[in-house]
């Protein structure tokens, strides 16, 4: 099993005729994903790697003849909110927002509408998610043959604020023989649709997942929320965390942004040092090096 995706999962690509979207469509199809349509206004009737293109999401759903499960939104920042609203209003329940540099207010509105309608947003500013041997949704892991090298089915769930590091960490888990159940690139922005705490209940319910690895950075409250969730839910699922950007705690780096838009230390609480303390206090193992992750996971699950 996996979270969010399964063998029958269908999705569309919004903005499918863009350069990046064409690549992503090829990669997902090669990996075994079922893409049932693409949307680019004014391009109805075209095909991208055999996937029919429509002007609207409604047309795509009508053509498919039954509800579509997901959408990958790869449209320019100024149009992303409308695209996501359109997907939600046409009954789509899982939307991966790849686009970066979306104004924060738009993101807040997207996330709120998704909450109201029982839909889920992954991202923005993310590479999507992958369930090895099942499907991938988004550019995560790159071309199918590269993705298959780094991602082999296994027992560890991965959540990461960095798209690239999702693959680096998963590759390490795969090389160590642990493998990955589902890996989610959750996005690097200040506001995202699905945080660690939002996804944890799904991993808890997944029989394949025995442990979680998170990649985290300074900035924001997401790690504090994970700790709060863990305590409230009484969850004991082993979690190993890797914290990047410790150098940002230096006095000379105050107020500077590195890496992702959401990676900025604004107060003491969101510094790397404070976050590490908080995570450790909740029984989460924090490692200093990526290559220490597999052993830390094995120790926690007793493998």
């Amino acid at each position: 099993m996996s979270i969010l995706l399964n063998e029958d999962f269908t999705f569309i690509v919004q903005g499918i005729t863009g350069r990046e979207a064409v690549n992503l469509t090829r990669e997902c199809l090669d990996f075994g994903s079922s893409i049932v349509g693409g949307v680019t206004p004014g391009r109805k009737g075209r095909e991208v790697h055999g996937v029919p293109v429509f002007d609207t999401v409604e047309q795509a759903v009508e053509h498919h003849g039954k509800p579509i499960d997901g959408a990958v939104a790869t449209v320019p920042p100024a149009f992303t909110k409308d695209a996501v609203f359109e997907a939600i209003e046409n009954g789509i329940k899982l939307i991966v927002v790849v686009t970066e540099r979306i104004p924060r207010r738009d993101v807040a509105e997207m996330v709120e509408l998704a909450d109201e309608r029982g839909a889920r947003i992954i991202g923005p500013n993310c590479l999507g998610l992958i369930a090895p041997g099942v499907a991938k949704m988004g550019g995560i892991g790159g071309p199918a043959k590269d993705a298959a090298k780094a991602y082999v089915a296994g027992s560890v769930g991965v959540m990461s604020r960095s798209g690239g590091m999702t693959t680096e960490i998963s590759s390490t888990l795969t090389a160590a023989g642990l493998g990955v159940s589902t890996a989610v690139s959750i996005g690097g922005d200040a506001i995202i649709g699905s945080t660690y705490a939002d996804l944890m209940p799904l991993f808890e319910e997944d029989p394949q997942t025995e442990a979680i690895v998170i990649y985290t950075e300074p900035g924001g409250r997401m790690e504090a929320e994970l700790v709060e969730w863990r305590e409230e839910a009484g969850s004991t699922m082993p979690i190993v965390a890797f914290m990047a950007g410790r150098f940002m705690d230096d006095e000379s780096m105050k107020g500077m942004t590195f890496g992702h838009a959401g990676t900025i230390v604004e107060g003491k609480e969101d510094s790397a040092t404070e976050k590490i303390k908080r995570l450790e206090s909740a029984g989460i193992t924090v490692v200093e090096r990526i290559d220490e992750i597999p052993d830390a996971v094995k120790e926690r699950i007793g493998a």
Binding site: S162, G164, E168, Y215, E217, G245, F247, G259
Partner: peptide, 12 residues
Amino acid sequence: GAGGGSLTLTDA
């Protein structure tokens, strides 16, 4: 590079 990789490598 990239975003997360740069943070990780600078620390390393």
